[in-house]
Computed example of a mutant assay.
Amino acid sequence: MKLKSLFFIYACFLLIACNQSDSEIENTPTENPASSEAMYFPPSGSDVWETKSLSSLGWHQDKAQDLLNYLQSKNSKSFIILQNGRIVMEHYFSGHTATTPWYWASAGKTLTSTVTGIAEQEGFININNKVSTYIGIGWTSAPLAKENLITCKNLLNMTSGLDDSLGDNVSPANLQYKADAGTRWAYHNVYVKLQDVVAAATGQTWSQYFNTKLRDKIGMTGSWIQSGDNSVYWSNTRSMARFGLLALNNGNWNGNQIINTAYFQNAVNTSQNINLAYGYLWWPNGKSSYHLPQTQFQFNGKLIPSAPDDMFCALGKNDQKIYVVPGKKLVIIRMGDAADNVNLALSDFDDVLWQKINAVIN
């Protein structure tokens, strides 16, 4: 009996040990090489840029050509996908090349947003101050009491209250009162006055300050070119991708905090309670409603339903795009002519493009 009892106890001990071992194996996290991989930043002044294959990420290589065919059929000139900073797809269409410059259009508003934040962190401005603190009174034709309501933050989040129906001209005569600042969201070219604010506050030209504090620090190329009433940024596609990579990393470039994280997070999230899908000249996705340029109508639902909820983006006329997806460590760039009809920001192209992208990456 004693021998049988000892055998029974020993068997139970083995069973418990085995169960514990199995449990430990099941609960031990398996390391994902992609998640532990260090973020990559391409060196400045060089064409060197690390790459990854679609297969190494487990993406669907068989769906890539359909995405490229769609891009080409929609008048695209260039397309890049970065994952963790490395190039996974890079394609050029219709004679466009890696060195050909193209305009950012309103996607470049995000450059103005970023440099405004840099000027604030350096103590030159405070975005809560009225615009006239820096460029003087009479910069609009609004009554002085109404003009004095307009802060730099109102220009960043498109709630200046100035009449958006008068075109892009930002001379005082064309900047007319429509509503009190902060009470009405309207997509308006008056945001460019932020460039005057930065220039006046820093004692430098806008281009000088931009180049020194942002462009050169992350290895971008390109320049601001006057086009009618707008100063528009032109660069090659990789320079746009560099800026997208800075955005993916909350304003940090390879350990150098170019723009403070708190400001940047405010910039890429809802900045006022009228258009939930608008930050500081950035468009956050995943909100319950949104407004579009040239209308006061509120659309219900997400800005780009097929895109990830945590995505934020820069949207420019005729479908210039910077998509940033923190959860997937993605930056996606599209430059070109209008995919379909002329548009100022969002178009039907965005959602269909994301359906094609999802077929590749998911």
Score class of each variant (00 low, 15 high):
Val324Glu: 00
Lys213Arg: 15
Lys193Cys: 04
Ser306Lys: 15
Gly255Glu: 06
Val331Leu: 05
Lys109Met: 15
Glu147Tyr: 01
Ala98Thr: 12
Asn27Met: 14
Ala345Trp: 00
Val342Thr: 13
Gln195Trp: 02
Asn154Gly: 08
His60Cys: 08
Ile118Asn: 01
Val88Gly: 00
Asn273Ile: 15
Gly228Lys: 01
Gly136Gln: 12
Gly203Val: 09
Ser141Glu: 08
Ile125Pro: 02
Cys18Ile: 13
Thr51His: 06
Phe264Gly: 02
Thr202Ile: 09
Cys152Pro: 04
Asn275His: 02
Leu315His: 00
Thr30Ala: 06
Gly228Cys: 09
Ser94Cys: 03
Leu111Arg: 01
Ser132Tyr: 11
Lys74Pro: 03
Gly58Met: 07
Asn256Ile: 11
Ile118Glu: 09
Leu194Ser: 02
Pro33His: 04
Gly244Asn: 07
Ala307Phe: 08
Ala64Met: 14
Ala247Arg: 00
Val198Ser: 00
Val88Asp: 01
Arg238Asn: 12
Ala307Tyr: 11
Asp196Val: 06
Trp354Gly: 04
Gly95Thr: 05
Val88Lys: 03
Val352Trp: 08
Arg184Ser: 12
Lys287Pro: 11
Tyr191Gln: 04
Glu120Ile: 09
Asp66Ala: 15
Lys153Gly: 07
Asp164Pro: 13
Val197Ile: 11
Val88Met: 04
Trp139Thr: 05
Leu67Trp: 05
Leu246Ser: 02
Ala307His: 10
Val192Phe: 06
Ala181Met: 01
Cys18Ser: 09
Glu26Thr: 15
Asp229Phe: 10
Ser160His: 01
Cys313Asp: 04
Ala247Ile: 02
Ser288Gln: 07
Gln296Leu: 15
Ser94Asn: 07
Asn230Glu: 13
Gly251Tyr: 09
Gly117His: 06
Phe312Arg: 00
Trp354Val: 04
Ala200Gln: 05
Ile25Leu: 08
Tyr92Ala: 06
Cys12Thr: 02
